[in-house]
Design a protein around this nucleic acid. Structure first.
Length: 277
DNA sequence: GGGCAATGTGTAA
DNA sequence: TACACCTTGCCCA
């Protein structure tokens, strides 16, 4: 269940459990057998997230393990005191150490990268709202010149790294931006507000592990509507709420497949005449 | 037990 | 635009 906040949590968990310690590394499933063997018995030195990518480094090895979860991948952690879980299903990579255990399942990418390959990977990522060194102006340079819709641009990892389908829908709702508005028609002030909001929302996501975007004054429970009518773990305005009433105006939330992904928005709160570029 | 959707990305046409 | 890939869980019979 990966948007950027999930991967920053994963990186932090890997650091907390394994950094500075020797790890046992294996690939129960076998598809990462060679890579797992290369790092087995080494000291794990760091784990860091860049957008939706996680990079894990080891002492005495220039190559880096690169993990990308894709749509279905996931990490499962267990404490050292817990019983070692049997290898169930398809565990691509298992790490064990004094800090516990980590199982990786279903990733799109789990591979060793050379330093130039890592450079190339990072070079094609836009700024990540969760990184202190991120420069939102880099994203603005792309957005302000693009005829593509802001909904498409927010999902483009070369424009902004770490935003996924939930944050994109929610942040556009929070700023009353019609999803089909072209990037170049967004306006600097609106972009600055969207970026600042992404920083706040995604940091909160790292802290809690869920995506909660509804402001207290729109809390559906407080407004007499059933809470938590979604299954992704947090309270949201529009994501996967097709046909249900908007928490602000009551209009039915709309959905449409755009670029192969489901896009959700409120046709009233995010109608074109509500936003001046 | 089958069918399907899912917070993603890359390639080819 | 289509599809290929990775895996799980939930819904339905």
């Amino acid at each position: 269940m990966p948007e950027g906040h999930t991967l920053h949590r994963v990186a932090a968990d890997l650091r907390r459990r394994f950094a500075g310690r020797v790890v046992e590394s294996s690939s129960p499933q076998g598809r990462f057998a060679q890579g797992a063997a290369r790092v087995d018995g080494r000291v794990l030195t760091d784990a860091e997230a860049w957008g939706k990518h996680v990079l894990v480094t080891f002492d005495g090895l220039d190559d880096v393990v690169h993990v990308h979860l894709g749509l279905f991948g996931g990490w499962a952690f267990a404490d050292a005191s817990d019983e070692v879980p049997p290898v169930v299903g398809q565990v691509r990579w298992r790490l064990r150490g004094p800090g516990g255990l980590a199982d990786l399942r279903g990733p799109t990418a789990c591979e060793l990268l050379s330093p130039p390959q890592v450079d190339a990977l990072l070079a094609r990522l836009g700024p990540d709202p969760l990184r202190a060194d991120a420069d939102p102006d880099r994203a603005w340079q792309r957005i302000s010149r693009s005829r593509a819709s802001i909904a498409t641009l927010l999902m483009d990892q070369a424009v902004v790294a770490g935003v996924g389908n939930v944050y994109r829908a929610e942040v556009l709702f929070r700023h009353q931006v019609p999803p089909d508005r072209a990037g170049r028609d967004i306006g600097r002030a609106t972009w600055d507000a969207i970026w600042a909001d992404l920083v706040v929302l995604m940091r909160e996501g790292v802290r809690t592990g869920t995506i909660d975007t509804v402001r207290p004054e729109h809390d559906p429970e407080a407004m007499g509507r059933p809470p938590r009518d979604d299954d992704h773990g947090g309270e949201v305005y529009v994501y996967r709420r097709t046909g249900r009433p908007c928490h602000v105006c009551g209009t039915a939330v709309t959905t449409e497949v755009v670029g192969g992904r489901n896009l959700f928005w409120c046709p009233r709160c995010q109608s074109a005449d509500r936003l001046t570029p």
